[in-house]
Design a protein around this nucleic acid. Structure first.
Lengths: 228, 228
DNA sequence: TCATGTGCACTAGTATACAAGTACGTCAGG
DNA sequence: CCTGACGTACTTGTATACTAGTGCACATGA
């Protein structure tokens, strides 16, 4: 226990504000293009402008918010290139990670993954999308952990703003959940068998699934998109 | 020209403070483990605490600074795992990018790269390490640009704090520059020939070179390192 | 001598006050 | 009716004041 180990507790007002705003943006409760007034948000959340400003600055790094000096802060519009960038980053990081995971996976790591998959099947049966999203995220985190580079997951998650929005905006039907679980099972199987090439292939296909729903959403919400 | 296009000008005090502090940390002018007082930095730079706080928050995301509430902010120590994480991220992103670049490179892109290489050789002859570092960075950026995902370079650069420090701490001799230029030439050649596999292999080897100097630096500056 | 408590000087977190800049409506004049 | 200048109401950027928590030194008592 040194003085650095306490450095990321995350119980501050600023962290809370960041989490709330990020969730609101990703679920499009704060829709793309919307103006965010620091004053308004501060009042709404019952805090001062300072933590709000900090949260907006972090969201800017996530590319979820654009801050124009002396003019305003805005939820970024969805753009094809933005989504493709996020997909690229996620693919690069997680594919590299899953290769390592397939080589290094431990017994307890596999057990953890199996438990996660079981819970995913439960969530699928009960159509509990919220739980499923959480389990999905956890699965990817475990894989990065097992690869020895959890940082890959953290970065992947952060670069992921546009992807998350697209995913959350597309109304997931039951076939979506079924498909996802099935893909998760295949790629976990490849990891369990210690086959990096197949694991990478499966993951790549899995990650590209989200991309396909972009156009579908653009049709439904053209006002959320940047014309390019 | 819409209202989003003005969002990243970067002429603010906060951005300036961030750039200054990052440079100071990367060059170890602010050495690993050193405590950074917001008040002290603010006074030193002739600004208030507000922009300093913002800069420190960003540096925390870069893992160059650890902020401990009610205790202080510190330049992070160098750790093997931190360096390996950074190397992993950079490898994953830039290798994925160079594969695309090898497939998509344009005529003008190649010309730009050749000009960069020529400048590198000049810098090598004149032992102008500072210019060389800049050209090195630019080369990697151009490659990511040509891949259509400049975001990869931006992320790679940010995740790169620990690597940069290690690189800047190791006194580069002329053989180092010679080696680097030679490696750059090989990987550019692979890109020019449109050979993604070879380009990736060359880049991977190139990026791992930095890693080898970690132990050398640890011997010289054990106090900069985290005991693990 | 050693252990313990207490105060002080420091820290970051937050709230507020002020400065600088932008957009837009309004009103006067051609 | 159209055009242009001005004022107002907003925005973010920065500086400062205040709050709460930490560690450390020093005094005090056993």
């Amino acid at each position: 226990m040194n003085r650095f180990s306490r450095s990321s507790i995350g119980g501050n007002t600023g962290d809370r504000v960041y989490a709330i705003l990020r969730e609101a943006i990703v679920t499009a409760e704060l829709e793309p293009g919307r103006q965010l007034s620091e004053n308004e948000l501060a009042e709404l959340l019952g805090v001062s402008r300072t933590p709000v400003r900090g949260a907006l600055a972090r969201l800017r790094e996530d590319r979820l918010v654009a801050i124009v000096p002396q003019l305003g802060s805005f939820v970024t519009l969805i753009s094809r290139s933005g989504v493709e960038d996020a997909a690229f980053v996620r693919e690069a990081l997680e594919c590299a990670a899953i290769r390592l995971a397939a080589e290094r996976i431990t017994e307890s790591g596999l057990e953890e993954i199996q438990a996660n998959l079981a819970a995913q099947e439960r969530a699928e049966r009960e159509l509990d999308v919220e739980s499923f999203d959480l389990l999905d995220e956890t699965l990817h985190r475990i894989i990065c952990q097992q690869a020895g580079h959890e940082v890959a997951w953290a970065l992947s998650r952060r670069a992921n703003g546009h992807l998350d929005r697209v995913r959350r905006l597309s109304l997931p039907d039951s076939s979506y959940l079924t498909e996802m679980v099935s893909e998760h099972k295949s790629l976990v199987a490849a990891v369990a068998e210690g086959d990096p090439d197949r694991a990478e292939t499966e993951l790549r296909r899995h990650l590209r699934m989200v991309l396909s729903s972009v156009d579908q959403i653009r049709v439904r919400h053209p006002e959320y998109f940047e014309d390019e």
